[in-house]
């Protein structure tokens, strides 16, 4: 994917966001029935900001469509299979832990499980790994246990934060 196409798509997303936000701001109440100064209405500032975002989004989209802008390739345009695999795995792991497990499952098993799985799979994906899988699993298990107990201890005992579960 070329940088121009990335800019055109990003510009389109920003433009749609700006238009939707401007519409939502316009529809906010002006409290005329309460004799409130309409210039302090809640939609004024978001309206101004979304109008600016809309204009900037159109400018970025047009620039991308016309083929303007810098020649540098943004990172998003350059993917190899290994990068895509590592990124997909990382996003999947953080979504499962942050949204699926945190707060739904008691903290200690959720966090220990996450750190173990993350470390083991990330290490397993390395092409230059020298340690055996059994040794990697053992190391990841020790790390997850020690790190989870340390985080739990520091936050609950030292800083008196009640962690989920």
């Amino acid at each position: 994917m070329s940088v121009r196409r990335v800019d055109a798509i990003a510009g389109l997303v920003v433009t749609v966001f700006g238009a939707a936000a401007l519409t939502a701001s316009w529809r906010m109440p002006r409290f005329a029935e309460r004799n409130i100064d309409p210039l302090t209405a809640p939609g004024i500032t978001p309206g101004l900001l979304s109008a600016i975002i809309l204009v900037l989004g159109i400018a970025l989209m047009l620039r991308g469509l016309r083929g303007g802008g810098e020649d540098r390739n943004p990172g998003i345009a350059n993917w190899d299979r290994a990068s895509a695999l590592r990124t997909g795995f990382t996003i999947g792991a953080i979504v499962v832990y942050g949204i699926g497990l945190f707060g739904q499952v008691p903290f200690v098993p959720a966090t220990a499980g996450f750190i173990f799985v993350f470390t083991f799979i990330a290490e397993w994906m390395r092409t230059d790994r020298t340690a055996s899988l059994a040794r990697t699993a053992l190391g990841a298990a020790v790390l997850s246990g020690v790190a989870t107990i340390a985080i739990w201890g520091v936050f609950t005992k030292l800083f008196l934060v009640t962690l989920p579960g």
Binding site: A93, G98, G103, T111, T119, L143
Partner: peptide, 16 residues
Amino acid sequence: EWLLGVIFALCAVGAF
């Protein structure tokens, strides 16, 4: 690989 899992767990606990 041995740091990032722990760092993300810290990010989650820190945000919470």
